[in-house]
Design a protein around this nucleic acid. Structure first.
Length: 963
RNA sequence: GGGCGAGUGGCGGAAUUGGUAUACGCGGCGGACUUAAAAUCCGCUGGCUGAAUAAGCCUUGUGGGUUCAAGUCCCACCUCGCCCACCA
């Protein structure tokens, strides 16, 4: 018998698959359709790595599984060929990207085929070919036609040595990627004209349809966060001494009374007009520096900085004068680029206020945990009441506490209508409750807090809030109190004793604030205080009311904001699809006639950007000069190219009709195949997925597709790391080359099987050098088993053995079928391994040429075929099948073979396993219980005790509860 | 700072609705075959006490709780990972 030798059989089958077009999908087939794909690859000179091997095997297994099940299964192939790395290489080497791609892509063909991936090469696409990018341009064309593409300016990184725009990834440590020496200057930002797609028009649509997607949850969440919808209000603050207003966006209008200053983004349009002459120089300097701050600085240094403009605004709710500052923690691009700062309840504002000594005003009281904190009742009325608590001291380190039985606390009481202020109230309470008549001073000592109480006697909900005040009294002034004397026992304590004496939790908290000095706020929701007519109401209740109130005065409107920006789609780069626009001095930016598409990217010798901020295309004079389609006058082509994200946001549709020259694709065909059934990748790829969804929704609007969501299922799979858990990297030299593993003699099948077996698909797998040898051994065992069977004598197999063989086989079929369907590849492989182990035991006495072994081995081979397609085809053929295992070979499992005559029942005594018993399937509970009691091991534990209760879980377990 | 997720043998990892924890693989140990090795095949392999392949106890990050029964459910804590990050 020949040994399992992948080096022989794998190239052989790869050749056969190629010749027979085994994986060519018939897109017009009557069969049920299935399309599984991984995110397509960016072809770089480095070739495939272990991460690619992982990604593409995942979708390949799915595609093969469905193909074997009788689906018309399509596993497409394409290349994301445009992009910066190829252009950078071209700039350095002078080799054109077109040329590099012409050699790189074919080298990938070999590697993909060596991995045994079942790609349909007939329908291969690449984004850099005119036949493809004609339609990328068409998408821009269509967007423009629909009013969804527009031009605007945006700040861009600029290298003064290159005289060129830089992409974010070309900025390294604040310097240009080509000029990162010690003497080289930092990059700057310059205003550059950009094209945008109005993806924000689709924000709600894209957000609303996320929930229904069968995607990895974290990816769905990332989509939601990216869109970043938040509901709030736009509120106008009048500029003091002027007719002008400044609008702010806030999600917390309920905290308006706490707005003690205002902050504008340094780029805000009103900054220069409101700045006073004294402040002007400082403001301008700050704005200039902020603009040039690199991303790196912004991320590493979160320390708040800012400058006062000298101007004041008026808080619309109470007319309070608030200073206006500028600071770079407020972003120009979000909301109105201006905020009202509520330092008491917003951490960023708080930090800023502390740094610049701005007032902090508490307007939300936190609920304290205490005796009064009952649940509100709906059946009785609610009353709001303000209270004031007194931390009474002689001013010399002694504190007066009230003693009521076991409870010790500060004095305090309600703020009555007769009290002019809480301070008056607390002074009055101090006198009344303690008898010390001479109050020397009163000042707030701790933040406001709130509690909720139900008063049974008055049948009333009480919503209470109040602050704590330090009340200094003259200790020699005690007189008989007229009002409450005798009701309260009081005693002086030393400062060091107070904390250990107080029994009320909220009072202890106030004490800690008092002695800690600083009143820090980390409260976000609760009861409003210091908020005029809204005092005592819940923040969540007030949020809408306060906006409604201001709206009546024309000072506020409800407003929804999104973090998502419009999509900047133009790049000042050579290696991309040219934007199909002609710039005419007279007519402006004009679309090229649709019939002129594609605008071919001219081949150049020099790929260096032109030096005026435009791409190298600006030097391609013959190409550049043209006539205006509208007026016929002299004009120039747009030299910007399209963001490669556009290329990759629609490629899945092109897979269905890759050679169409008349239309982007045949809609009828796409409507038959949409959506993509299975999509996977090892990156969140939030932007890619969002843009693809956007294009899907856009196509739906154009009637090109029926289903706006392109991807039905998306699996965010894990990556492969080195054995020590660190990332593979070229610099560390710890990379694992998949082709090398294959060439070592283990073969693609063993590699594929290991990758799918090592861990669940959504978990990061560690590379184990012993792993592939392990799966090689497994495949080897199948190889041996089949060959031993083929060499065996023809004779009948004992009935009991037949039963066992069939049971093992059908159990395996069931598990593998279900697990692949649910993306649990690792346990599917484990089930096949278990089957092999069982068949090895059974073969010792029972191996024979027979129907039962034929069925067992054919099923086994078919079930491992998605993971190990080469060995499967080889063995399938040897088992006498005439078709390929790759199509229509998936076995069905039959329930009748899974049932057994006896079942194992676990027997517990008081929840502890004491033995197992074998009983006939379908035995009555009484029979099972009797058998359980009869078991010798169990019996010893039942000896001398009473069985209080017997629990029988059918077909599984018995538990005797004894005493 | 915010969000999400995870802690199970020496390692990667299994465990429907709560129902025999540690499937499967790796590694390790022992044996068979062999002049020998590799390969292959067979067996053992969570920890502790024990001479034991007797018996018992313990064990899913830690501590509580619910339950006849908890890796799984609830509460608190600890640790790790990932993503987003000044979005008002």
């Amino acid at each position: 018998m020949n040994r399992y030798n992948p080096k022989e059989i794998e190239p052989k089958w790869q050749g056969i698959w190629d010749e027979t077009g085994a994986y060519t999908a018939d897109l017009r087939s009557d069969r049920p359709k299935y399309i599984a794909m991984s995110m397509f690859n960016y072809p770089s000179g480095a070739g495939i790595h272990i991460g690619h091997a992982m990604n593409y095997t995942i979708s390949d297994v799915k595609a093969r599984f469905k193909r074997q099940q009788g689906y018309e299964s399509y596993h497409p192939i394409g290349w994301d060929a445009f992009g910066l790395p190829a252009e950078n290489f071209a700039i350095k080497s002078g080799v054109s990207p077109q040329e590099s791609m012409a050699t790189i892509i074919p080298s990938y063909h070999k590697q993909y085929k060596a991995m045994g991936w079942s790609n349909d090469w007939e329908k291969e696409i690449s984004t850099h070919l005119p036949e493809y990018y004609k339609w990328t341009q068409w998408i821009f064309w269509k967007m423009h036609e629909q009013g969804l593409a527009y031009q605007d300016s945006r700040m861009q990184w600029w290298c003064e040595l290159d005289n060129s725009v830089l992409a974010n990834e070309q900025v390294i440590d604040g310097k240009c990627w080509r000029h990162d020496g010690a003497d080289d200057p930092l990059v700057e930002k310059r205003e550059v004209k950009q094209w945008f797609f109005r993806i924000t028009d689709y924000a709600d649509e894209l957000l609303d349809s996320i929930d229904a997607l069968d995607w990895t949850e974290s990816v769905k969440l990332a989509q939601k966060n990216w869109i970043g919808k938040s509901k709030g209000a736009e509120v106008d603050f009048a500029l003091e001494g002027s007719e002008q207003k400044i609008a702010v966006f806030t999600t917390r209008p309920d905290t308006l009374y706490g707005a003690t200053f205002m902050v504008l983004a340094p780029e805000h349009e009103l900054v220069s007009s409101i700045t006073t002459d004294e402040q002007r120089q400082e403001i301008e300097e700050y704005a200039r520096v902020a603009q040039q701050k690199s991303e790196l600085e912004r991320q590493t240094s979160k320390e708040k900085t800012g400058v006062f403009t000298g101007a004041y605004a008026l808080n619309p709710v109470n007319g309070a004068q608030v200073p206006i500052w500028i600071a770079d923690y407020v972003l120009e691009g979000y909301g109105t680029g201006a905020i009202m700062a509520v330092p008491a309840h917003d951490e960023r504002d708080n930090e800023f206020a502390h740094k610049y000594n701005l007032p902090i005003k508490q307007v939300v009281a936190d609920y304290v945990i205490g005796d009064g904190n009952d649940a509100p009742r709906k059946d009785v009325p609610t009353r709001n009441s303000e209270t004031a608590d007194a931390i009474i001291t002689d001013g010399k380190g002694k504190y007066l506490l009230q003693i009521e039985g076991d409870e010790i606390h500060f004095a305090g009481g309600g703020v009555d209508e007769t009290d002019a202020s809480p301070e008056d109230a607390v002074a009055r309470e101090a006198r009344e409750e303690t008898g010390y008549d001479k109050v020397l001073s009163v000042k707030q000592a701790a933040p406001y807090s709130a509690y909720y109480g139900y008063r049974a006697i008055k049948k009333r909900n009480n919503r209470c809030w109040g602050a704590y005040y330090e009340v200094v009294v003259d200790p020699s002034s005690k007189v008989p109190s007229e009002v409450e004397d005798g009701m309260h026992e009081v005693a002086w304590f030393d400062k060091s004793e107070v904390a250990s004496r107080i029994t009320w939790e909220d009072h202890l908290r106030a004490w800690n604030h008092y002695i800690g000095g600083d009143i820090e706020m980390d409260v976000h929701e609760g009861l409003l205080v210091n908020s005029g007519e809204f005092d005592g109401q819940e923040t969540s209740e007030v949020r809408e009311n306060i906006v409604a109130m201001l709206a009546e005065q024309g000072k506020a409107t409800e407003k929804v904001n999104y973090k998502m920006r419009d999509w900047s789609v133009s790049r000042q780069r050579y290696w991309g699809a040219p934007i199909p626009i002609i710039n005419c001095e007279k007519c402006g930016a004009v679309r090229v006639p649709e019939s002129d598409l594609p605008i071919i990217l001219p081949e150049l010798d020099d790929f260096q950007p032109s030096g005026d901020g435009r791409s190298a295309l600006a030097r391609a004079t013959d190409w550049l000069k043209t006539t205006c389609p509208e007026c016929g006058g002299e004009a120039e082509r747009e030299t910007d190219t399209l963001d490669t994200y556009i290329c990759s946001s629609w490629y899945m549709y092109r897979y269905f009709d890759p050679r169409n020259t008349q239309a982007i694709f045949d809609s009828e065909l796409v409507k038959k195949w949409e959506p993509i059934d299975f999509y996977n990748g090892a990156d969140h790829a939030t932007a890619h997925l969002l843009y693809a969804r956007f294009i899907g929704h856009f196509f739906k609007g154009l009637g090109l597709v029926n289903e706006p969501e392109p991807f039905k299922q998306f699996l965010f799979n894990g990556k492969v790391t080195a054995a020590d858990g660190t990332m593979f990297s070229k610099s560390k030299g710890n990379g694992v080359d998949p082709l090398e593993i294959i060439d070592q003699g283990y073969g693609a099948d063993a590699l594929r099987t290991y990758l799918m077996f090592a861990a669940p698909l959504d978990t990061w797998a560690r590379w184990d050098p012993q792993g592939v040898p392990g799966t090689y051994r497994f495949l080897s065992r199948i190889w041996t088993l089949v060959h031993q069977y083929l060499a065996a004598e023809e004779k009948p197999v004992a009935e009991a053995a037949q039963k066992e063989i069939l049971r093992a086989t059908h159990q395996m079929i069931r598990k593998v079928s279900e697990d692949i369907e649910e993306n649990h590849y690792n346990t599917a492989i484990a089930a096949a391994m278990t089957d092999v182990n069982e068949l090895y035991k059974l073969k010792v006495d029972n191996l024979a040429k027979s129907d039962v072994w034929q069925e067992a081995l054919s099923s086994l081979v078919a079930c491992v075929a998605p993971f190990a397609p080469h060995i499967a085809d080889e063995l399938w053929l040897k088992l006498g099948h005439h078709n390929s295992v790759q199509r229509d070979s998936w076995p069905d499992w039959k329930q009748e073979y899974l049932t057994q005559d006896t079942m194992t029942i676990a027997v517990q005594v008081n929840g502890k396993l004491r033995g197992t018993i074998e009983v006939e399937v379908g035995s009555d509970e009484s029979v099972v219980l009797a058998a359980a009691k009869a078991d010798t091991k169990v019996a010893t534990h039942l000896d001398g005790v009473n069985i209080v209760k017997s629990i029988y879980v059918p077909n599984k377990l018995v538990n005797f509860v004894v005493k």
